[in-house]
Amino acid sequence: MMRRAPDGWLLARALRLPESTLALDAQGWTALLAIARAEQMLGTLAWRLDGVAVPPNVGRILEDAWRSVEQGRVVALWEAEAARRALAPIDERVVLLKGTAFVAADLLAGQGRSIGDLDILVPRASLDTIEAALLDAGWEWVKPDPYDDAYYRQWMHELPPLIHRDRDRMIDVHHTILPLTARITPNAAALLADAGEVAPGLWALSPEDMVVHAAAHLFADGDLAGGMRNLWDVHCLVEQDGVAGLAERAAMHGLNREVARALRLAAALYGDGAGSRLVDRLYLRRVTARDGWGRTTRPVTRMAFYIRSHWLRMPPAMLARHLWTKWRKGGAGPASG
């Protein structure tokens, strides 16, 4: 019998129904591990498969992955603490975003999650003071490129990325959750006002706003890259805090369509799958476009989403200028392979 070629659904099924992995042979495990690594979800898989009987070598690989995300959690929380110390003299809330917020608040979404840069949200009016305080505490500019710098400052929803000179870790300082070029303008003041304190001096978005942020990031800010992990975040957040008040909150930010779609896609991948629409299938096809070697597949869908995501963020003339500048430097388009 012809075997179905593995794709992102293999990972989705393992996360949804951990016992489904009992049926995997060596080839199936190899594909699952490669896909999970490529989606940066091996730690999440290790967490979900805790207690499930797996082949000994798979157990060792998952144990290594678990230790790795545990260490990542320590480093991420320390980076948040370092930012808190640097910004303590400024009387503003430091609101953690994404992975660091999930682990600081000890949420389901943070279990086994790999965490990259530190993302924080601060009031736009305080950006200059915060930038100065971070530079004073050892953070430095990553990109000396004046075009990128001007681009970030004029159009993006964050400062150009900073990196700490000793710890080699990046911080992204956001003042809202979507670029200023996007057609939708979330209510940044409400995001800050309704944040909760999750550790002394460290804040996180309200549970509803965490879902709104994940949805905004998925559809309006990105090219759906990292979609499986992002939708897993959505799934866990909703599992933990429910959907009460979520629709109203999303509508207030102008992101009701995005949030509704994120909930449907998360349910299709990780939940009961009810209510998924025809148009959602295209998104799911893109999100699960990954083969058993960990490679992204379906290049046509992928490029379409890349152009789409740029169009969402920028008016066409601005996009042309941006791409031209990128092409001249020989680096347009998403990486492949």
Binding site: T30, A34, A38, P55, N57, V58, G294, R295, G337
Partner: peptide
């Protein structure tokens, strides 16, 4: 157990580079 710890991929940057001046890109986990 037939399950490797790591995957390495040797691939062509563009499909035609498999045959035309073939050059090997190094990928993997």
């Amino acid at each position: 157990d037939g399950v490797p710890d790591f995957t390495v991929r040797l691939f062509a940057a563009r499909p035609w580079r498999r045959v035309l001046r073939p050059s090997v890109m190094i990928g993997g986990d």
